[in-house]
Design a protein around this nucleic acid. Structure first.
Lengths: 188, 188
DNA sequence: GTCGACATGTAACCAGTTACATGATTAA
DNA sequence: TTAATCATGTAACTGGTTACATGTCGAC
């Protein structure tokens, strides 16, 4: 008898399994965690979706749910990976299929249609982008330092790699904005 | 009497209006065009969505539809911007609201969960990414040259800006992959 | 005679969002 | 007393995808 048919899960499920591999968490915790980590290079699901996803994972036997009563706070449900959940996670990370990243820039789209734009507001838009990205960069660099300063109890290797990825991309965006502003300003 | 309530359109509508601002096109043409242009920094809609979107735009009075009979080919419907469509497009490009780009990397997500991975396959994944991005870079650089070589009948400014954006981001991805591979290989 | 380009569309589906709903505790 | 944090969920909606459906022409 073959094992129950393993419906293949959407990426989001794996993102959640992955986060739970660090430590058991509630839906609420997962949302906080996602906002601070994977949102920087992936995306952060709406909380309603997290709860939905957790029910699905539980039903599929990939996580367990533990009801925890608290008195100073609302009760919570803490989810943890099952051995099968752990296996599925590794399998996914290890899998050979490669998926291209997706990059969707509203700013670039508007620049592409720059012919239909007022040049001044287009430059404004790019300046805005530049400011934003510089803040982003500062944030990421702070995260990097924090990561480097972390104790010996946890291995920062992978977190560091993703932070550095974020830094590279943010710098690229900064360079692009600067160049584009220059280019548009020098136009007649 | 106020003008008809202007339901605010999704981004995709503006992408289509923008493409039509270059020249009137059919749904089929739009798909080809999107694949070659905005897919590089935004995304390319499924054809079924383009046809749906065109109906919406027509209903909203932002494009006109012209039925063209062909004998060697199936008939087609060619869409063109109305003055109102053109106005809405400019308004959107010029608008002051800034939207952050979205970057969603499956590779980075998997690297982030690298603890759960076989180190070898993780490195494989990064190598794969590297190869892919190098091809991407070559393609973009070819596009850049082509753009620079274009005749005086059309202004390549904005297209060039987006291509150069693509080049910056792709280079960032290449640097990141190289660094990450090195970093993982040098681990014990 | 088969494949790819041309050309448009429908149907079924699902991923994901926002808004709504509830309610306790604690700090300003 | 007002707002933020903790905590979980439902309902309504839409954006977008894949698969299916149809049919001609020209090139190999």
């Amino acid at each position: 008898m073959p094992p129950a048919p393993l419906a293949d899960l959407p990426q989001t499920s794996f993102a959640i399994l992955g986060m739970l591999s660090f430590e058991p968490m509630s839906g609420y915790d997962l949302k906080q965690f996602a906002d601070k980590s994977i949102s920087h290079f992936y995306w952060s699901p709406a909380k309603s979706q997290i709860y939905t996803e957790l029910r699905r994972l539980k039903k599929a036997g990939l996580v367990t749910e533990e009801h925890i009563e608290q008195d100073a706070r609302p009760d919570k449900r803490v989810y943890a990976l099952t051995p099968e959940g752990n296996r599925r996670l590794s399998e996914w990370v290890d899998s050979a299929d490669f998926e291209q990243h997706m990059f969707k820039s509203n700013v670039m789209l508007r620049v592409f249609f720059g012919k239909s734009a007022n040049q001044k507001s287009l430059i404004e838009l790019l300046r805005h982008n530049l400011t934003f990205e510089r803040e982003q960069l500062a944030e990421l660099e702070a995260m990097e330092q924090q990561c480097l300063a972390s104790g010996p109890n946890y291995d920062p290797t992978f977190t560091l790699l993703t932070i550095r990825g974020g830094i590279e991309f943010t710098k690229a965006s900064i360079r692009w904005s600067e160049e584009s502003i220059k280019s548009l300003e020098s136009r007649v």
